[in-house]
Amino acid sequence: MIDFIKIIIKELRPAILEANPLLDFYDTINLTTGEMKTTNRNGNKVTPSKNASYNGLEFKIYDTGTIAIAGSLHKYWNNGAHNYNDFNNEAVSFVLSDLKTKFDIEPEQCILKCLEIGINITPPIPTNEILDNCLLHKTKPFEYQKNSDEGKYKQVEHNEYIIKIYNKALHYKSKGFDIKTEIMRFEIKYTTLTRLKQKGIFTLQDLIDYGLHNFKDDVLNEWQNVLYYDNTTQIESLSKTIQKRVIEYSNPNYWTGLLNNKQTENYKHHRKQLNIITQKHSNKVQEMTAEIMRKKID
């Protein structure tokens, strides 16, 4: 379930990594002046660092002596190639053991700064249909994103975390991978440590001790927080008045309009009505998807 992480390594001398033959460090310098790069493309100040990569993980040694690693542990397990397959507890243990063997990095040394927890499933209907019908998460609308590494996906950004939903099969098929089934990924990206600290998670070892399966409720709850319009709803079985209302329900602008006009109670009422209609007159895709998630995590 772990994917992207960003960690700070404590009690590890930079010289150990610098001397490692698996890491080829380079500096970012101005080729004209020979000066170290101190600002990024947006003009913001950055601390100069030496950089190296291995199997999808980026190693940084800052001039201050701080060591940071960022990247996907899931991709690391696949030699940096992909993260569309299953990454279970045994695979996580292998990766952590490999980091110890190759780089002398222990999980208790790894202070978490960012973490992605997610699950890949075979959905009950085509993934793109599910993405198109995920309208809001809580009260925020989903937006399509496109990234050269992550492909096309939907996300909602909250203060402490981001919800992402991907069509993993489509993304990696476009890269030449032979994938036979639909693959949907649902993911929580913790951008601050608040929620993790509440669980007693500060380091990578704390995360392992807590148990990845204990994120099951978090994943399922956040999926249920998705305002989902079920396109299997049998509209023809409804009265003309309800049909008109259901058509409105399928439009994310209807919901954001209620929220923008501060009609919170109206929003809650109509969301409840949508749930009732979905339960009675559809194949209950969101519920089916939750059950697949539940079984997959178990």
Rank of each mutant, 00 (worst) to 15 (best):
T28C: 02
M293D: 04
L17D: 08
I162F: 03
I67R: 04
K37Y: 10
K216M: 07
V156R: 00
G151E: 02
D149G: 07
G257N: 13
K113Q: 12
Y166A: 03
N283P: 00
K75V: 02
M288L: 13
I111F: 13
E129S: 14
T203R: 11
E265K: 14
F202R: 14
Y166I: 04
R13I: 04
Y54A: 04
Y249E: 06
K284Q: 14
N159F: 07
D86E: 10
D3L: 02
F186W: 05
S250V: 00
G257P: 02
L57I: 10
N283W: 01
T194A: 12
G65M: 12
V246N: 05
N85K: 15
L23R: 04
G200L: 04
E248R: 15
P126E: 10
Q263N: 11
E291F: 09
A169K: 04
N44F: 14
E143N: 03
N214S: 12
T64C: 03
K268W: 01
K113G: 12
T192L: 04
L17R: 09
I235R: 09
P48N: 01
N275H: 02
Y26I: 11
Q273E: 15
I292P: 01
E222N: 08
E287M: 08
C134P: 00
M288W: 04
V156L: 03
Q145Y: 09
D63N: 15
Y254A: 01
E160H: 14
D298A: 13
Q234K: 09
T241R: 13
K189H: 06
D3R: 02
L170M: 08
P21I: 04
D218C: 04
L23I: 01
T139V: 13
E18P: 01
A91W: 07
F4T: 14
I119S: 07
L22Q: 11
D298F: 05
V95E: 06
I292V: 14
L31C: 00
I61D: 00
T39A: 07
R41A: 12
K113P: 01
S250M: 00
V156H: 00
I121Y: 07
E108D: 13
T101A: 13
T241G: 06
V95W: 05
I277L: 15
V219F: 06
K262D: 15
P124E: 10
I162L: 02
T264Y: 14
G200K: 05
H158R: 00
T181F: 01
F186C: 06
T278Y: 03
K10A: 02
G65N: 10
Y153P: 08
R271A: 14
N221C: 03
H137A: 01
L238W: 07
T64K: 03
T66F: 09
I292D: 11
L204V: 12
N79W: 11
S49E: 11
H137M: 03
Y76H: 13
N44M: 12
H137P: 00
A70N: 08
I201V: 11
N40R: 09
Q286I: 10
P141L: 09
P126R: 08
R294C: 07
G34S: 03
E18W: 12
V219D: 01
I242P: 03
G118R: 06
D98W: 04
